[in-house]
Every structure is written in structure tokens, then in C-alpha cells.
Design a protein around this nucleic acid. Structure first.
Length: 834
RNA sequence: GCCCGGAUGGCGGAACCGGCAGACGCAGGGGACUCAAAAUCCCCCGAGGGCAACCUCUUGUGGGUUCGAUUCCCACUCCGGGCACCA
């Protein structure tokens, strides 16, 4: 055992005290304007965007901090790499969430929100983010929502904003309409209340028309695959055909259909259009089913049947999903009407059932019970004919009725399909669609699941939809020069069950002259969805002080589209889809010259705590203030980045921070103790060059946890025992660690004698020649099993390796006789196969 | 049901393009320094066997390809996320 030299005198330099260091540097950054970006003079603009927070009363969530820190490191790194980095942040402060909280605590949102923002700002300042606060946005500021209203008008002008009476999602607790995206499994995303359908006149954005572009562009974007996949699922493309069945007024005598045709029919429309992805199975379509809300239903049902149908409609309105999803049993009613299958020209009965949905396709389906699970269950229930029209190769082709539907027909061939027998499914789809199209009873159709975006909210806390309703002129846009429509400060902002915004109660605001004809008119009282506020905020940051337009053309050209966007995947189908849509529309309107706002997007993971999701009820919510206080922002930031892969998140454990704090302590110590005497150690310098390379590769890949591990490894090598650290060994390390622990980075950089910011010091270069030693350790395997190691010179031949290996007795004893085969991978291993 | 991820020590997690499984950190054990404690520094730390040199087993399960598999292929189990009576 070697003697351990005594500890160096600890009082020769100040100990690492995060509170002092962080206070000092926060003040200096402010003083020196370190975080201000030269927006007009930037040569190499790099827009590092993070999703702006909703300033809740609870204060900054550790999830926010995790997200922002990851973005901050990315931004600081690119600044060191020589880019002009712009890292803005603002507040998404409108919306139901804020309003509900204001109602709960009985404080007006106009009072509450500025208070919350102030608290957020205090916490954000403590976190050491490189945010340029001179370019912030607050969605509730009239200078911001003026332009949100302007965006609405751009859509209105292009016919992309329209009003219609529709069954919309109504949350009886929040007392407002919700977008489809805000309904989760039939429940309100915010409060969990069962959502009802209500018929109301609402404003919609025609996003569905953009579905093909929104889908196709995804292939060109550098985004997290999971996010792109979520958008693809949500847009929901299906290729198929629309087929036409004519309704027959002839009494049918078709085999198993026993329902008599009543005399009451007054058929308004004599054709039923259905959408199918399987036109090849048309010969197996033995009945039709209409959704209860289908416009033809009333015309072909008796009063008696309508009672049943009404019950189905009621169930749909109430979103009775428990009944709908747990019972496999199908409910339906026969109408007694018949339609003509365009392929077989047979009469098929028309049914009404609530397993067919009005808001997808045409609200009517052709049922192919031989090959669809739901149709099969329905046919069994009501004794409807089942025909098999696809058969797998080698199977019997003529089952009269199959006992079970044949679902996987991807490899099959058509049967019972007249002259199309023997075609594959894919051939059948094409050939049959063409054949029917020639007869005028089919056309190829692509369906999308994406619905138009309902943007009206019957609430108070949002930007007014800038429309004036005039009896003579209809809905008239508020002239652009009259924007913004200012949100009045009213005390009674609580919504009621009427479905009308509280603002309607304020006559002085509500009544207004029509901008077109001057007649008495009334203001639109709905506000727009919060997601409209956030659908364009990234366009505003560079132009935050621009009064004449929402975004300055020159600045927009310099800074957009966004270089890098980092945020949570919970916004994969809400915010991220809407932002793409709005950008596309603004491009089409000539206001932008790009149509995709975010060149690169990465979804970060989620932080859980001790294996469980953080929640107030579990009491395991992290208050960042406590950790800032106890460990310092730098250690807290670094720990958040260390606890798992950034894109996956990780498990927060209080005790884990101590390791990171120790790591920062050791850097502090090395910087203060380092010497310029002597020369740096070769092996240490080799490790340093390897570390520079590794960290420089890991940060752009968001592999922060392994970047930190690599720096820790280096510190272990550099500071082993009590060896004297050379200045050249530690100086580049300060540059590497600075983006993780920015206050410490600056302080150490200053200690090393620099006067400018470490973030303007560049990124250290590594020398490829210094990455490798002149010998390497060769792993020796015998029959694939590790049996030993030998040290070889770089460039050693296989023969030299063999000689060295066989000289080792432990290895040699496993080699019996002449080897059959030898695998030698220079730099890696030698495998002797006996 | 369909589409994405994922499963590795007591714990969080590493592992380039198929080449030493368990880097880094936490927790744990031992030691140095100290009157003592903290801090700091050093050593050990997947399981089993052996006095030891060493040996055997081990990356959710079962197969396969390969000189060699955490990594590739096939089948399956479980967990997380998206979509879902979507025709």
C-alpha cells in the first residue's frame, strides 16, 4: 500500500458555494447582456425554441425545467460552436386552465396571471437559462392577441374559418366546447368529466382539407419518429372507394330477409353512398347499415322504428362509451327498405345501427359479415346472410356460411365473386373499383380521420373571435385597423350552462355597429381556443416589438423556420399539428415563404419520481426552489440531465444529486489547484481528447447522460489520488461542462484568467492523433470464450498476436492442437477456433 | 385489434457497424486522514463454486444465424405511448 499524501490546504481558495457563484453570475449576465441575441446582425442564426409554459399558480414544474435545461444546453453548445443562438421564452397564459383556477380561488385572471408570471420569471431566472428576455411574448397581452385575431381573419378571408351548427363536444363541468383533440376516451382532458355532444353553432378551421399535405410533409421533417407516427395516426389516412347502392322501392323476396316493406316510405334520396377500404369484397356485401344520424334514416323508418333510432342517437350524444365498448352485442333495427348491390344486383336489406358512425366516411357502410368482425357479430345477431368472398390458397372455396369471419385475407384470393374469382385481394380492389366506376357506381376515395378544428370556446379568458354579426350582412370581420378587440375587464366571468359566453351579458360591449353597413349589430362572444395562441407564437419572438405587423419580414427571413424545437410529446397531435397548419395557411396567403415551421423537433421524456408519476395527490411533486436552495441550480440542472436519456426521461431520486454535486466540486477544486509548472500527462491528455470528442458528439444527439458520464470519467482520470492537475488538462473541461453548469463554468473560466464569457470562448478541438495510444489490449478468445488479454503494438500482425497469446499459459491450455480457424480484428480481438 | 417504443446488477442507467456485458452515478462494504465526526482520498462491490490461480452461469422467455449475439432473424410474455365499433 502506498502512502497517501496529506490533503492540500483547503483554505487557499474559496470552497464551491453555488449560492454565491450563481447570484454573482446571474447579475453579471444581466449587466453585460450576455443572453441578448443580435437579431439583425446575426451571421449564422440558430433558433433554439422550447415550448413555452402555461404559468400556473403552482409555479415552475420540474418537467418544465427538464425540458428547458435540455434546450438550454443544446443552445449554449451551438453558441460555443460559433452560431448566433436565439433562445427566447414566453408565457401561454390564456385558456380554460387559468380561468378555472381563477374561478376556484376567486381572483380575477387579469390579476392572477401577472402574479403567476412574476413567480415563474423568478424561478426561471434562478435556473440559469440563456434566455433572451428582451424578446418575450405573453399571449394575454393585447399587443400579442391583436395578431392572434389577425391570424383568425387570414383564415376567414380564405374561407378556412366557417361557422356551422354541429354536434360538438361539450364539457358540462368546464361549460365549454372542446376540440376532438381535447377529448380523451370520451372524457374532458382537463377535468375528466364525461363529455356530451351538443348541437351548437361553432367556429371551425378547415384543417381537414390540409390533411394530405400535413401527412405528406411529415416524411420531409427531421422529427422524433414517435411524434411523426402519432400525427400519422391522428390524420388517419385510408385508401378505398365510395360505392353507390340505389335504394329499391320494390318488395324484396330475398331469401333470409323476412322483414316486410311497409307502405310508409317517402324516400327523399334514392342512393346510399358507402365508403369501404375493401371494394374487392363487394360480392359479399349482404346488407347495408346506416348510422342513426344518417340523413336518409327518417325517410325510410316507421314512427315505431324512429323511437328506437332516437334512443341510439341519445346514447351517442351522451357518449355512452361504457355501453358501446364493453358490450360486444350489436344493437340495430331493420328498416324494411332494400338497396341494390351494384355488383351482384341483388337486393340487400338496409339496417340502422349505432356501430356505424356518422362522422366518418359517409355515415353508411356495406356490411361484409364474411370478412369483418363487427359485421359478422351483427349478422349472427340478426340472422343475416353471410357470404365468403375471399379464400386462402388451398382452402375450400364454397362454404355456404362460415362459422367465423375470415379476417386475415391479405394472402387470399377472391371467390364467389363471379368473373373476379381467383384475383388476389389487391388486384380485386383495383379491378372491381374500375369495373364499378365504368358503370357509374364507384369512385376511388381517400378518407381521413382528421376532423375540422373547432376553435370556439364559450368562455371569457381568451382572445375574442374578431367577428361582428349583422342581420343584413351576416358575419363581418372586424376591420384590421380596429384590432385588437380588447377583452373587457368584467367581474362576472363565470360561464353558465347556456353555451353563451359571459361577455354576452355586457350590452355596452356586445352591441356594436356593423363595419359594413353601419346597422346595429352584435359582437361574436366566443373566444378562440388556446391552441390558436400557441399555433404562431414562434413567429412572434424575433418580432416581439414589431408594431406594424405580426412578424417583421426581414427578421422572419433571418430566423425562421425554427432551427431546433424541443418539447413534450403530449403535444404531438395538438399544438404541433395546429402550428403546422397555421404556418401552411400563412404561407399560402403569402405572409411566409416556408410551410413547415419546425425543421427539427425532438420530444423529450418524462420525469417520474421514485418509480411513480408525480402528482399532487401522491405528494411527490418536486418544488424546484427547494433544490435550487439546497444544491444550486447547476447541480440540479446537471442531475436532471444525468438521470436518464433525455428523450426517454427518468427516475428522480433525491440522493442521486450528491454524485453530480461531488463532480462539480472536483472540477472547482481542480481549477483552483491547477498548476502551469511541468507538462501535462500524456495519458490524461489522451483521455481529454477522447472526452472532447465524445461530449461534442453526445450533445447534438441529446445524449446528455452519457456526455456527463464521459466528463466524470475524465475527472476520475485527471484527478486521481492527489496528483497535481496541469492547467492544460482542466481548462478545456470547463468549456465542456459550461453548458450543463453555466454559472460554475463562467466562474471557473474567470478563475483561469479569462475576462470574456466562456460561452464566447468557442468549443475545444480534439486532435485525432492524440486519441489512441501506441499499444492496445487485445482480447483473446478461444472458441468464442474470453480466455485472456495480451498487450500488442498498434499495427501488430495476426502472427504476432498468436505468438503473444500462446505465450500466455492460461490461454494456451485451452488451445489443443492446430487451430481450425483464427479471427483477428486489429484493435479488438483475437479468436482462436479449435 | 392496429401502429410506435421498451425489458440489462440492490437502484438509475452504459455498451460504435455483431467483438471484454454492467461505463458513469446512487446505495452498500472495507481502509487512510482525524481526539472524534463531517468532508476528502484509496480499494471492493451481478450470481454460484474454489484456499488460490481460476472455473461455471448471467442482458424478459423459447428457438435460429454466426468463430462470436444485449446487438441480427423467427415465435412468445410483460410494460409504456398513440389510434380505435374509423368500415
Amino acid at each position: 500500500m502506498t502512502a497517501i499524501p496529506p490533503n492540500p490546504p483547503a483554505d487557499e481558495y474559496p470552497p464551491y458555494d453555488p449560492a454565491t457563484v450563481e447570484r454573482t453570475w446571474a447579475a453579471r449576465w444581466k449587466e453585460r447582456g450576455t443572453h441578448k441575441t443580435d437579431l439583425t446582425g446575426a451571421k449564422d442564426p440558430f433558433y433554439a425554441l422550447m415550448m413555452f409554459p402555461y404559468p400556473s399558480a403552482e409555479g415552475l414544474h420540474v418537467g418544465n425545467l427538464f425540458a428547458f435545461t435540455g434546450n438550454d444546453i443544446y443552445g449554449r453548445f451551438h453558441r460555443q460552436k460559433g452560431h448566433d443562438v436565439f433562445e427566447p421564452l414566453g408565457y401561454d397564459a390564456f385558456g380554460i386552465h387559468s380561468e378555472n383556477f381563477a374561478l376556484k380561488v376567486g381572483v380575477h385572471p387579469m390579476e392572477l396571471i401577472p402574479r403567476n408570471i412574476q413567480n415563474f420569471r423568478r424561478q426561471l431566472d434562478r435556473a440559469g437559462l440563456m434566455v433572451d428576455w428582451s424578446q418575450s411574448v405573453d399571449t394575454t397581452d393585447p399587443s400579442y392577441y391583436k395578431w392572434t385575431q389577425w391570424v383568425f381573419l387570414q383564415l376567414f378571408k380564405r374561407g378556412l374559418a366557417y361557422r356551422k351548427e354541429a354536434a360538438v363536444n361539450w364539457c358540462p363541468s368546464c361549460k365549454t366546447v372542446l376540440a376532438n383533440e381535447q377529448v380523451e376516451h370520451g372524457h374532458c382532458e382537463r377535468c375528466g368529466t364525461l363529455v356530451e355532444l351538443r348541437d351548437l353553432t361553432q367556429w371551425f378551421f378547415r384543417i381537414s382539407g390540409h390533411a394530405p399535405r400535413l401527412l405528406a410533409n411529415l416524411d420531409t421533417l427531421d422529427w422524433s419518429e414517435s411524434t411523426k407516427q402519432a400525427q400519422r395516426n391522428w390524420i388517419g389516412k385510408s385508401d378505398g372507394a365510395e360505392l353507390v347502392f340505389s335504394v329499391s322501392d320494390t318488395q324484396a323476396d330475398a331469401g333470409s330477409a323476412t322483414v316486410a316493406v311497409t307502405e310508409e316510405y317517402a324516400i327523399a334520396e334514392d342512393r346510399i353512398r358507402v365508403f369501404t377500404t375493401r371494394p374487392d369484397t363487394i360480392f359479399g356485401a349482404t346488407y347495408l347499415v346506416l348510422a342513426p344520424e344518417h340523413p336518409l334514416v327518417d325517410a325510410i323508418t316507421t314512427a315505431e322504428q324512429r323511437v328506437v333510432v332516437e334512443a341510439y342517437r341519445e346514447r351517442t350524444r351522451k357518449q355512452d362509451l361504457v355501453t358501446r365498448k364493453t358490450t360486444k352485442e350489436k344493437t340495430g333495427v331493420s328498416t324494411g327498405a332494400y338497396a341494390v348491390n351494384p355488383a351482384t344486383e341483388q337486393l340487400v336489406p338496409v339496417w340502422i345501427a349505432d356501430y356505424v358512425l356518422m362522422d366518418y366516411g359517409t355515415g353508411a357502410i356495406m356490411a361484409v359479415p364474411g370478412h369483418d368482425e363487427r359485421d359478422f357479430a351483427f349478422a349472427m345477431q340478426f340472422d343475416l346472410p353471410i357470404t365468403r368472398v375471399v379464400v386462402r390458397d388451398g382452402e375450400h372455396a364454397h362454404h355456404p356460411i362460415s362459422v367465423e369471419p375470415v379476417l386475415d385475407t391479405t394472402l387470399g384470393r377472391l371467390c364467389n365473386s363471379g368473373r373476379f374469382d381467383g384475383l388476389t385481394v389487391d388486384e380485386g380492389k383495383r379491378t372491381i373499383t374500375d369495373w364499378l366506376a365504368a358503370r357509374g357506381t364507384a369512385r376511388p376515395v381517400t378518407q381521413y380521420r382528421l376532423h375540422d378544428w373547432c376553435i370556439s370556446r364559450q368562455r371569457y379568458w381568451g382572445p375574442q373571435i374578431p367577428i361582428i354579426h349583422c342581420a343584413a350582412c351576416g358575419p363581418v370581420p372586424v376591420p384590421e385597423q380596429d384590432l385588437p378587440v380588447i377583452l373587457p375587464n368584467i367581474p362576472d366571468f363565470k360561464p353558465d350552462d347556456s353555451g353563451i359566453s359571459p361577455l354576452a351579458r355586457h350590452a355596452e360591449w356586445y352591441h356594436v355597429a356593423c363595419p359594413a353597413c353601419g346597422a346595429a349589430a352584435r359582437r361574436e362572444t366566443d373566444v378562440s381556443d388556446t391552441f390558436l395562441d400557441s399555433a404562431w407564437y414562434f413567429l412572434r419572438y424575433p418580432s416581439a416589438h414589431h408594431a406594424a405587423a405580426p412578424f417583421d419580414p426581414a427578421l422572419t427571413k433571418t430566423w425562421l423556420p425554427v432551427t431546433s424545437y424541443i418539447g413534450g410529446n403530449e403535444h404531438a397531435v395538438l399544438h404541433l399539428l395546429y402550428a403546422r397548419f397555421i404556418t401552411m395557411v400563412l404561407k399560402d396567403a403569402g405572409h411566409l415563404d416556408f410551410e413547415e415551421p419546425f425543421t427539427r423537433f425532438r420530444a423529450h421524456g418524462m420525469i417520474i419520481r421514485e418509480g411513480a408519476k408525480m402528482s399532487k395527490s401522491k405528494g411527490n411533486v418536486i418544488n424546484p426552489d427547494v433544490y435550487f436552495e439546497e444544491w444550486g441550480a447547476d447541480a440540479f440542472r446537471t442531475y436532471l440531465m444525468f438521470l436518464g436519456p433525455y428523450e426517454e426521461g427518468g427516475d428522480f431520486r433525491d440522493r442521486g444529486i450528491s454524485g453530480v454535486k461531488r463532480f462539480l466540486d472536483r472540477i472547482w477544486g481542480s481549477v483552483h489547484e491547477c498548476t502551469v509548472e511541468g507538462t501535462p500527462d500524456d495519458a490524461v491528455m489522451r483521455k481529454l481528447h477522447q472526452t472532447i470528442k465524445k461530449v461534442g458528439e453526445d450533445i447534438p444527439a441529446l445524449a446528455y447522460n452519457t456526455a456527463i458520464a464521459a466528463m466524470m470519467e475524465y475527472v476520475n482520470v485527471m484527478r486521481t489520488g492527489e496528483r497535481a492537475v496541469h492547467r492544460a488538462e482542466v481548462e478545456p473541461l470547463v468549456q465542456l461542462v459550461a453548458s450543463f453548469a453555466p454559472h460554475l463554468g463562467e466562474a471557473c473560466w474567470e478563475t483561469l484568467g479569462h475576462t470574456a464569457s466562456v460561452f464566447d470562448s468557442g468549443w475545444p478541438a480534439f486532435d485525432p492523433k492524440r486519441l489512441v495510444a501506441d499499444t492496445w489490449e487485445c482480447v483473446v478468445q478461444v472458441n468464442g470464450k474470453l480466455r485472456g488479454k495480451v498487450t500488442l503494438a498498434v499495427g501488430a500482425t495476426q502472427a504476432a498476436a498468436m505468438t503473444a497469446a500462446l505465450a500466455d499459459a492460461t490461454i494456451a491450455k485451452f488451445v489443443t492442437g492446430e487451430p481450425k480457424k483464427v479471427i483477428f480484428v486489429p484493435g479488438r480481438l483475437l479468436n482462436i477456433v479449435a
